[in-house]
Design a protein around this nucleic acid. Structure first.
Lengths: 198, 198
DNA sequence: GTCTATAGATAGATAGAC
DNA sequence: GTCTATCTATCTATAGAC
């Protein structure tokens, strides 16, 4: 009964969101409100006071995660870098930053959340926004497509049970960064004009 | 009551597995047995006759999906191609084959199934097996890492709500295939020996 | 602001009829 | 070989005490 000693409503909300993220990572999207609430140190009734429904809790969690990813990109933007591809470089660094465990946890959470159609739609719109920004970053279309695909591929390895941030990954990432500085090099790849097969 | 007209046990099993795949794609890993059974045209009791528990159904479904992916790689192996990187080329083609919708559906199912720890472990072992085979495919390590990462990245786009098999994707894929034929080209990328930044 | 108690819905699984 | 009926467990959400 009574308030948990000296915790503001905002702190309680944050604790509930963190608990929801953790519970959903571990137990899946159907982690119960009871479980989440207990994890945050409040009762189920207490959770419902802050988030009127499970849907409202999930929606708030998604907004938090998408904002965190955008913040990670912003944090990697180098003010001294004004050359074409600066956003793409920040994207590569943001996608590949963090430890292997962090990447795995983040991906586990996202895949769980994407289960819900409403969440998938919000995420799609956000991805489209980022893609549009990258497309306006000044790199040739094909180089951008390769670099972003490779970065996404490295970061999605935990999906299939693999690791990120292996030495091989870091070598690839550095070459990708280098490639954004010298895009004409990729376009100089000798290309058989009209030939089937590879 | 009695049997559904002229369907063999094997056909019923296949129908149940297909129904489970569809239901889990659409409704998530917590799709009910009742729903899956109805989708396959049998009762929940009928399903339980063929698969003693939900766990047994899911396990069989995972084995089916992993076998289908391996079969897709095998189908893309070119008997006339005996050069180093032949398996990697088959992998690229297998990962990027199929329609955009098929890729999206397959990924949606896999991410749902990976929710379960037992499934994740089986998938991890399978991914490790494929990685080992690719590592023995005769390509330089760094080229293999780039090519596989890019292919995985393209195919994982639906995860974030994007599309696969866009014209840009196909152009990248063709250059990746070409790269496996001329790996020394990637390694010739001018490389600043010891320099921070990109 | 957080709690208890409980309603109402739905899940997986069993038993046994046909 | 497939079905109906039912048990038990667990979930979200509400009502209202403190």
């Amino acid at each position: 009964m009574g308030r948990t000693a000296g915790r503001s409503p905002e702190e309680t909300r944050r604790a509930l969101l963190a608990a929801a993220a953790e519970a959903i990572r571990v137990r899946g999207i159907h982690a119960s409100l009871d479980e989440i609430a207990r994890f945050a140190g409040v009762s189920k009734g207490g959770l419902i006071y802050h988030f009127a429904s499970k849907d409202e809790l999930i929606t708030a969690l998604v907004r938090t995660e998408l904002a965190a990813f955008q913040a990670a990109i912003d944090a990697e933007l180098d003010p001294a870098d004004t050359a074409p591809g600066r956003l793409t470089r920040a994207y590569i660094r943001a996608v590949l930053s963090g430890t292997d465990d962090e990447a795995r946890e983040s991906l586990a959470l996202i895949t769980q959340l994407m289960t819900l159609p409403a969440v998938a739609e919000v995420a799609r719109a956000d991805a489209e926004r980022i893609d549009a920004a990258l497309a306006a970053d000044g790199l040739p279309e094909d180089v951008l497509a390769l670099v972003v695909a490779a970065a996404d591929g490295i970061s999605s390895a935990p999906l299939w049970g693999g690791s990120t941030n292996t030495p091989a990954d870091r070598r690839v990432a550095e070459r990708l960064l280098h490639l954004t500085r010298h895009p004409q090099w990729w376009e100089s790849l000798p290309w058989p004009p009209s030939q089937a097969g590879s």
